[in-house]
């Protein structure tokens, strides 16, 4: 019974979080703190902090965490499943439509109009991430002196290496992690 409730709650979260990431946060809070007594507000804040620190989409991370708290590993699997089910159905339908009609001139025109917007969105996400890495918060602070020089150094060397030698991004990220541990322990 509890598994069905988990499935249904995260199905709704998956269905109504359009725009991804932070758009899902209030929906998750409503389902797991307000509607069901699965997490306390402190636990919810903790899972948001952990979701930000660990890889993966926030909705999937919180689904796993809530699922484990409520019903162990099966709970985690069921909650994650509920979360991705709406995506699977809707996106696969859209993919089918896209590959069937993208040869049409009109569809090509519409898609051409979307491409600059996609670049703009990635650029915006990139800037947010640079601010988060440099200042440890999402919004640019008024006082810029709190900048994290080590993060700037890691960022700059990563960017330089990527532009110059086209290395695998996963190597850059792993290197950045190692460099972070080394530099932050030497210059606390």
């Amino acid at each position: 019974m509890i598994l069905l409730e988990l499935l249904w709650s995260f199905f709704q979260i998956g269905l109504f979080s359009i725009g991804g990431g932070y758009a899902a946060m209030p929906l998750i809070q409503r389902q797991v703190v307000d509607v069901h007594p699965w997490l306390t507000m402190t636990q919810f804040a903790d899972i948001m902090a952990i979701a930000e620190m660990t890889p993966g989409p926030i909705a999937i991370n919180s689904a796993t965490f809530v699922g484990i708290q409520v019903a162990g590993i099966p709970g985690a699997i069921v909650a994650t499943l509920g979360c991705i089910l709406p995506s699977c159905v809707i996106v696969m339908t859209l993919a089918y439509i896209y590959y069937r009609f993208r040869g049409l001139k009109m569809v090509q025109g519409i898609l051409a109009g979307l491409r600059p917007a996609v670049v703009a969105m990635i650029a915006s996400a990139g800037i947010s991430l640079v601010i988060l890495a440099f200042f440890g918060q999402r919004a640019l602070p008024e006082d810029l002196s709190g900048i994290d020089c080590i993060a700037v150094l890691i960022f700059a060397s990563g960017f330089f290496i990527l532009r110059k030698w086209k290395v695998n991004p996963i190597c850059v990220m792993a290197g950045a992690g190692v460099l972070g541990v080394l530099l932050y322990s030497v210059f606390p």
């Binding site: 990635i122 991430l129 890495a133 994290d148 993060a151 850059v172 950045a176 972070g180 530099l183």
Partner: peptide, 21 residues
């Protein structure tokens, strides 16, 4: 230690995204 590695990796990810942009 986990925090240091995560902070470093965040800067690395930011570099990858800027490269793509």
């Amino acid at each position: 230690i986990v925090n240091m590695a995560m902070t470093g990796m965040l800067a690395g990810v930011a570099a990858v995204i800027c490269d793509v942009v």
